[in-house]
Design a protein around this nucleic acid. Structure first.
Lengths: 172, 172
DNA sequence: CCTTATTTGGTATAGTCCATAACGATTATC
DNA sequence: GATAATCGTTATGGACTATACCAAATAAGG
């Protein structure tokens, strides 16, 4: 074990030629990732961080995090639901969802109102401003963020990737 | 777009018949994910959480997190490096790497020693126990965790997935 | 009807990660 | 020899997550 020269790099054999052998001692150079490159979790996590970074850049003008964006999407598609339903769908704990909604409501993007049927729960709705912001964000995500992915992988691989990730998220 | 009937369920149009149209108002039922299912970041994040959960279960007997496991892997493949090099390779800030190493060293899995060449830096090495633990963890990951992935996707798709994620992590 | 359980939104709190500033010791640079 | 840069480290704060608990409201059961 111990330094097994896995890349089969020539170990510095400068026989003839006084000219500099290319990279004489790469020893102290780059670190070997080794089996890390094949570890699903590792690659997955790094990819996710990159994607989130790009997402933030793409919608930077409207100050939306991926989590906030997903809330707006859900509220738009499922108006009138309460906090428990929206939060649990997104895998957010109800207590943690409170501050998040506070923020969105303070910015005038959504609105809580007591349900007449069940006065415990809050009916959630996007405001008009919320719909506008969401529409603009969707356009940015689509034309910048997702377009970048398609450019990088090709639209066929992109579909395959989403399919596989969905399978993992559901069945792993 | 908009509710594309993804399951190809027969839409069932009972033209006449006063009998209850099946699912008259699925309204108050399940929440529609909508465009969320096609949002790369969302699916990526959920998949990553699932994978990390499974990782933790698989190596639960030896109490290793994904991050700790990746450190052990790197130390094994790159003995004698210092903290800055290992941390930066893993995308960990140096200050945050200190406590992590403390933990691994307290458990007797690795060892810091001052470098004779540069007495500022610490030379990092796995201990014998560290190598043993790593070997057992690798076996668990391989036979349980990665095997599960292969079973879920097939070995061909698994390779394709890792390739695409690597591309994203590097070029996105 | 009345008592008990459950649910909803909310607060408080603690743990984990992650990022930055700063410091002493050591080494590099000029 | 003075100054700058690097290494490990501490301290600290922000973001996100998980749990216990609360009052108000509703549901369930006698």
């Amino acid at each position: 074990m111990a330094h097994s020269n896995p890349e089969n790099r020539p170990v510095r054999r400068p026989p003839a030629s006084r000219a500099r052998v290319r990279r004489p001692t790469p020893a102290a150079d780059a670190i070997e990732l080794g089996e890390l490159s094949d570890l699903l979790g590792y690659v997955l996590k790094r990819a996710q961080l990159r994607v989130f970074e790009d997402f933030l850049r793409c919608v930077a003008t409207m100050q939306l995090t991926p989590a906030q964006f997903s809330v707006l999407l859900l509220l738009d598609r499922n108006p009138g639901r309460n906090q428990t339903e929206i939060a649990s769908t997104l895998g957010i704990q109800r207590p943690n969802f409170v501050a998040m909604l506070d923020s969105l409501e303070d910015r005038g993007l959504c609105q809580r109102s007591r349900s007449p049927q069940d006065r415990r729960s809050h009916v959630l709705m996007l405001t008009e401003k919320g719909r506008t912001v969401l529409a603009r964000a969707k356009k940015l995500i689509s034309t910048r963020h997702e377009a970048r992915l398609t450019r990088l992988l090709g639209s066929e691989d992109r579909v395959a990737l989403l399919r596989m990730l969905t399978v993992i998220a559901r069945d792993f």
